[in-house]
Design a protein around this nucleic acid. Sequence first.
DNA 1: GCGACGGTTCGGGCTGCGCCGAACCGTCGC
DNA 2: GCGACGGTTCGGCGCAGCCCGAACCGTCGC
Lengths: 226, 226
Amino acid sequence: MSSIAETASLLADRTRATFCQALLDGRAWTAGELARSAGVSASTASEQLSRLIEGGLLAEERQGRHRYVRLAGPEAAALIEAVASYAPAASSRPRNLPRSGRAGAEARARTCYDHLAGELGVTLADAMISRGLVSEDAGLSVTPAGRDWLADALGYRHPAGARRPLVRSCLDWTERRSHLAGAVGAALCATSLERQWVRRIGSGRAVKVTPAGAESFRELLGAEVG
Amino acid sequence: MSSIAETASLLADRTRATFCQALLDGRAWTAGELARSAGVSASTASEQLSRLIEGGLLAEERQGRHRYVRLAGPEAAALIEAVASYAPAASSRPRNLPRSGRAGAEARARTCYDHLAGELGVTLADAMISRGLVSEDAGLSVTPAGRDWLADALGYRHPAGARRPLVRSCLDWTERRSHLAGAVGAALCATSLERQWVRRIGSGRAVKVTPAGAESFRELLGAEVG
DNA sequence: GCGACGGTTCGGGCTGCGCCGAACCGTCGC
DNA sequence: GCGACGGTTCGGCGCAGCCCGAACCGTCGC
């Protein structure tokens, strides 16, 4: 039996796909939030979420009268990104310039599952490449200097036998350039939130670079952001 | 509009998914061959193929009264592999050992889109890693020694600005270990077929290592195959 | 206790679509 | 020319599944 069809079916519905895209910010959403964001009734959302959970794409956590759901793991995020990336012709961006407000903030800086994306993500990726911390010419890989930098600047050491790739490229649906995902992207994002280099705006995936963050990014990577 | 749902829909049907899996051998099949292999009528196959082509996943080529279809490109193959890889629990292999005959031959050595897979693919991947031509500990990357080897042994040089990754890991649905895809995998496969290191068996994706091939693999990679 | 609210379950309507067989079209071989 | 054959188109059948509203359940706050 062709389990590839079943897996694809999970993402083959408008509502479920919208849920997954929203959850790509890596955080847990309540069922109601997702229902509203997708424009469907609560009952519909409940059913579709159950399907996604049963399919292993989402994980749930119940708290009181709330049902929180989030992506089941990095593999689930990678799957969604893989499908989302494949659609260069059918762009979901008819407008040529990001508008101000919430959409503009998301275009500037946001999280994408567990790493940083938007203009910020691209800028940081470029900076790491031009500093020789990440090399682009043999696929995508972290250089020895990059490993040192990860340990020094972020305190991150990659476990030897880790299944998850150290670095992975992620091309998402708003930017046309790729940014850094994988363990490196996750470490950078986690550290940035932890040390308040960036702060979340509102309840979406948008983030804002703090003055301390701009300073740190300049110092550590020579990147001018904000 | 959520184009991710449309893309996923292409693979969300049993018949279409079966077609795509068959086409993962990288060659062109006729509509009739696919219909028989999937166990559907010619009319059904015709319709579903048209959908896949319209969706950009497949490309067609008409010759006389035949309609040949093949995967549209490496991105299409990567998408299918990505979806296929995501399903470790729902295995499509209830039997624990590959049987002899056609299935056994495919398990031993076959092509997967444009690279070598099966036991042969895994063995060659292991050999390249243990010889230090490919490194596994920072994602997957080609070492400088590996680049030299590619040039010397295969005459392959990676174009500087190539969009396609030099090396990529591919975990397919029969083997549980990954083998090498990307430009390296394609180059190795192309060279192997060209120099008759392997030869196709029948009309499927199975291949057989020739005596000359066994010799070459031993000499170039220290790999014992066949 | 009560009401408000988030979430779920159930019944039912509607649409989409996957499938087939039959008829048809083009190509090939004779 | 004719028949064989690969492929396509069309009509129609039947199922799957997406959606909603209504009723219901648990939790929370008062």
